[in-house]
Design a protein around this nucleic acid. Sequence first.
DNA 1: TGCGATTTAGTCGTGCTCGATATATACAGG
DNA 2: CCTGTATATATCGAGCACGACTAAATCGCA
Lengths: 156, 156
Amino acid sequence: MADDNLPGGMSLRPESMLCFDIYATHHAIGQAYQPLLSEVGLTYPQYLVMIVLWDRDGQSVGDLGARLDLASSTLTPLIKRMESQGLLERKRDSSDERKVRVTLTNAGRELKQKASHVPACVARAFGLSMEEFVQLHGMLGKLRASLRNARVTGTA
Amino acid sequence: MADDNLPGGMSLRPESMLCFDIYATHHAIGQAYQPLLSEVGLTYPQYLVMIVLWDRDGQSVGDLGARLDLASSTLTPLIKRMESQGLLERKRDSSDERKVRVTLTNAGRELKQKASHVPACVARAFGLSMEEFVQLHGMLGKLRASLRNARVTGTA
DNA sequence: TGCGATTTAGTCGTGCTCGATATATACAGG
DNA sequence: CCTGTATATATCGAGCACGACTAAATCGCA
């Protein structure tokens, strides 16, 4: 008998499950970034934080969390590690002492140039055509939107 | 000036980068599974291990690692936690004492039924048509294959 | 046979991630 | 002004993930 009555040839074999696809792809992307990023002394999550700050400096911890979908319990230690590496500074917002503004140091800004080869390098390793790239981006966006909606509505 | 000269409108904004897409989708899928899996007392990685074992019992730690792309340093403690929960047993292979065979207990086998609603539940939350589902699966597989190949070849 | 190389798990330290919780600041109504 | 509530960040414990290393078993070949 079939393991489960799932639509359209789905089975419980991990290779054929979308969740496993995403899991494995996430994994593989991390592996692809790791050697490039270790040259500039960043982890992958730290790199994401830098990208957000390079785009706009001086954001609060909450702003970073909203962009990256990370909680303060993740960001606070991560940012502190980056602060101790001299990439950024943390200081309370003078007009709202609850907020912590994160600003890049010179070293943090300079790292943008040192890491400028990374995106193209990885994009090349992806081996996707521009059309596939756009298609994939669109579907993943739709998938996330569905998941966001399902969470609010409840899955039952 | 533009941040980087990347093909086809790519920029460093995280929302438009594919790596961020995968990262965020992985994240969102984890969040979708979490409430369903916590009902049956599993984490997401533990669920993946169970899926592999439900498919074929008695695999070695190395077999599980090959299927899930995880190192022994990740799997050993993870499997030990599952053993202490009574889901499986670890015993050395009598014909090759280096290997550790992981076999399900009755409780572990029974959990398959208790968790049988999970895949359809999540698939529903994905909100993708069957066509999109297949397309996405294909592109992610191609992406992983490219990354695997690039890692061997070297990215420079 | 015996010894070096390979394979297989496991250990350790570091870092990321979460949920639950704590603390401090800001705000709003009386 | 004071008090209760909301917001922003931080802390804590657990689990996951990796690379570097160790230990033990197996294999291969002289």
